[in-house]
Amino acid sequence: MHTAADRRLAVSHWLQSAHPSPEDVRREWSEPDGVALLPLGTLLSAVRIPYDLVDAIAACGHRQCANEVLDHTLDGGPVICDPRSRRYYALVPASAPRRLAPAAAVLARAGVECLSRGTYLGVPRVDALEMTTWQSYWAVPMPSPGELCEPQRVADLIAHGMRRLAAAEADA
C-alpha cells in the first residue's frame, strides 16, 4: 500500500519525464504560480473543454460541484482546471487525438479541442488541488503515474454537455 504522498511523488516524476529537461519542470513548479509547461503528444495529450459544457452537466454553478461531476463521469481520470481561461483539460493517452479526429469539427463548434504534438500545456504541481488564486489546479488529481482519462468517457462527457446546452438554448 502506498501513501498519498508516495503516489504524488510518483505522479510528479512521471509528469516530469514528459519534458526533455525534468529539472526545468521542477524549477517551474517551485515558482509562485507552480505551473510547468509540458509538451504534449508523447506520454499524454489533453482535451480542452470549456466550463460551459461541464456546467451544463453539473447544473450547480460551483467549481467544486463541477469538479465532482468530472471525477465521477471520467471515473477518476485526471483533469486540470484553468480558471483564468475558464477551461478544463482532461489528460488522455497520446493517441487520443487521432481517435477523436473524425469528430474534430463537431467538437470545435462546442469549443472543444484535442491538444497533442506541437502543443504545450500548463500543468500545475501535483499538490495544487484547489483554486487558491486564479492559477491552474487539479480539478481531479492524477491517481497514479500514467493513469489517464479514457477517451470514450471524455467524448461521452462532451456529447452529454452539448445535448444539455442545446436543450437549454431550445428552452430559451
Rank of each mutant, 00 (worst) to 15 (best):
Glu23Leu: 09
Asp24Cys: 09
Val25His: 04
Pro83Gly: 09
Pro141Cys: 03
Ala18Ser: 04
Pro102Asp: 04
Arg117Gln: 13
Val112Gly: 00
Arg125Asn: 12
Leu70Arg: 13
Gln16Asp: 06
Ile80Val: 15
Ser30Arg: 13
Glu150Asn: 15
Cys114Pro: 00
Glu23Asn: 07
Val11Asn: 00
Ala110Gln: 15
Val11Met: 06
Arg109Asp: 12
Leu91Trp: 03
Tyr89His: 14
Ala168Glu: 15
Gly76Asn: 05
Gly76Asp: 03
Leu148Ser: 02
Arg99Met: 10
Ile80Gln: 01
Glu169Trp: 06
Arg84Asn: 02
Arg27Val: 05
Pro93Asn: 00
Arg164Tyr: 13
Trp138Pro: 02
Arg87Glu: 03
Val92Lys: 01
Ala159Gly: 09
Ala172Tyr: 03
His13Thr: 09
Ala59Met: 02
Pro83Trp: 03
Asn67Asp: 15
Ala168Met: 07
Pro39Trp: 04
Asp82Ile: 00
Ala18Trp: 01
Arg109Gln: 13
Arg27Gln: 10
Leu37Tyr: 00
Glu147Val: 09
Asp127Asn: 13
Ala4Trp: 05
Thr42Ser: 01
Thr73Glu: 12
Ala170Thr: 06
Leu129Gln: 07
Arg8Val: 08
Ala96Phe: 15
Ser45Lys: 13
His160Met: 11
His13Ala: 15
Thr132Phe: 05
Leu157Ser: 03
Val140Asp: 02
Ala168Cys: 05
Arg8Thr: 10
Pro141Ser: 08
Glu113Tyr: 07
Arg163Asp: 15
Ala5Gly: 11
Pro20Thr: 01
Ser136Asp: 08
Asp24Phe: 12
Gly34Pro: 04
Ser17His: 11
Asp171Gln: 07
Asp6Leu: 06
Arg87Phe: 04
Met131Leu: 06
Leu157Cys: 12
Arg84Met: 10
Val54Asn: 06
Val126Thr: 15
Tyr120Met: 01
Arg84Leu: 12
His19Gly: 05
Ala172Arg: 15
Pro97Asn: 07
Pro141Ile: 13
Gln64Thr: 09
Val35Ala: 02
Pro145Leu: 03
Asp82Tyr: 12
Ala56Leu: 13
Gly122Leu: 03
Pro97His: 09
Ala103Leu: 11
Glu130Ser: 13
Val79Thr: 03
Glu28Cys: 14
Gly77Leu: 07
Gly118Glu: 13
Ser30Thr: 10
Trp14Asp: 03
Tyr120Lys: 00
Asp75Ala: 15
Val123Ser: 04
Leu38Pro: 10
Ala108Gly: 10
Pro145Cys: 10
Cys149Ala: 07
Val11Glu: 03
Ala66Phe: 11
Ala94Arg: 05
Leu15Trp: 02
Leu44Cys: 05
Val140Pro: 04
Leu121Gln: 10
Gly77Tyr: 05
Gly122Glu: 06
Asp52Gln: 02
Val54Met: 08
Gly146Val: 01
Ala104Met: 04
Met142Phe: 09
Arg26Leu: 08
Asp156Asn: 13
Ile80Leu: 02
Ser12Trp: 02
Gly146Phe: 01
Pro93Glu: 02
Arg87Trp: 01
Ala96Gly: 14
Ala172Ser: 06
Leu43Asn: 07
Gln16Pro: 09
Arg109Val: 02
Ala110Ile: 09
His62Cys: 04
Leu157Tyr: 09
Ser17Asp: 10
Asp24Arg: 08
Ile49Ser: 00
Asn67Gly: 14
Leu129Lys: 04
Ala5His: 06
